[in-house]
Design a protein around this nucleic acid. Structure first.
Lengths: 200, 200
DNA sequence: CAAGTTTTTTACCTATCGGTACGTTACTTC
DNA sequence: GAAGTAACGTACCGATAGGTAAAAAACTTG
């Protein structure tokens, strides 16, 4: 029965700005003053709209997984397992070599951190493992459909693909270029099971 | 021309304690109070002996690369390229799934961080890239010696191996077990160039 | 034992951390 | 236009960050 003062900023735009900062500096390396400066709002507005730093990060994480990181879930829809993997790894290269914020928000914040942000780390790890389980299920289906050799191990292959994907993010953070990492992806794809003798 | 009060702690032992903390929490997530508590010394002693937090980390980084991370440089001495890779990746699994401090100090601290520790990050990145260059040189030699097929790309292969190695560290930080990661290593080795038709 | 040197201890520094109290402003509803 | 509501701006909170001043303590050398 009353409206109140309207919000002076766009919530989605503010989240995008926050994403930029968290991506570039990590959760632990980001101060509230960094966030408010980038988002163009002051501290009480941030708390009013998003709760606190941790809750804001979780919102940003959702946004990251659905937005820039969405290629991974989308890749599962490829009809052939090899193309699923090609999209996941190719997408990782494009994502993590994007100038301005090299590396991956998810990979970064799954790493060791101080005790006070262990909960945030766990949230990231849980999401990562959900993605792993989804790829594993997808590769199990592929094997059942004959899209992978009968002897293939979907669990190990899924772990392998995500291992390479994580590694791509780390390498990108260590100045690897997109071209260099695309060659890495090519090596993986050239040896993907079920395509006769590899060329390399 | 005088002795002064003798140091009440062992410098190497203190560095090992500091390594534990930096490994478990990362540079950014480690407070000086964490360090002094673990090292069993008080703050001015730390500054007197090691300079400051950043200088201490650099000492610890040296110690890490020569100690727990020494398997990587040692692996280059293997006579066959495939065994070099097997030792690097196998060593990464053992190192990063060691209970108490999962993950890798080097991988962790090469990731995005706040502005105030960017110099530390660069130091880590530079060391990582030196290791990459060494493996690349080793694989070039292998190709020249016929230990790799003539068409093999040593630079891409070296990057690939380190990508997997980094990925292993990330996965270990996300609760992957040593057994799971050993299967990943097996997949890489099964497809290593120059061994006829792969079995998978 | 006195002088000189270095480490230890205690106590403290400033800056910044994440988070909030409170009064003001801008809007909707009656 | 009065009442109600919610976001805004300013100014602040206690806690902790990395780092240090200064004096007491433990040694070596003469």
């Amino acid at each position: 029965m009353a409206g109140g003062r309207p919000r002076a900023f766009d919530e989605d735009a503010a989240l995008d700005r926050a994403l930029e900062v968290f991506w570039r500096q990590g959760y632990e390396g980001t101060a509230l003053s960094d966030l408010t400066a980038a988002m163009g709002i002051n501290r009480p507005s941030l708390y009013g709209a998003f709760g606190n730093k941790e809750a804001l990060f979780r919102r940003v994480l959702d946004r990251y997984v659905d937005g820039p990181g969405g290629y991974s879930a989308a890749a599962l829809a490829e009809p052939r397992a090899r193309d699923v993997v090609a999209r996941i790894l190719g997408g990782a290269v494009e994502l993590t070599t994007d100038s301005g914020h090299p590396g991956c928000l998810s990979v970064r914040n799954a790493q060791a951190c101080g005790p006070e942000c262990e909960q945030v780390r766990r949230a990231v790890v849980d999401r990562r493992n959900a993605g792993l389980a989804a790829l594993r299920a997808r590769l199990e289906r592929a094997r059942d459909e004959g899209d992978l050799p009968p002897g293939a191990d979907p669990a190990a292959l899924a772990r392998y693909v995500f291992t390479v994907s994580d590694g791509i993010a780390s390498q990108a953070a260590s100045d690897a270029t997109a071209d260099e990492l695309r060659k890495v992806v090519d090596l993986v794809l050239a040896a993907w099971p079920g395509q006769g003798e590899p060329s390399r």
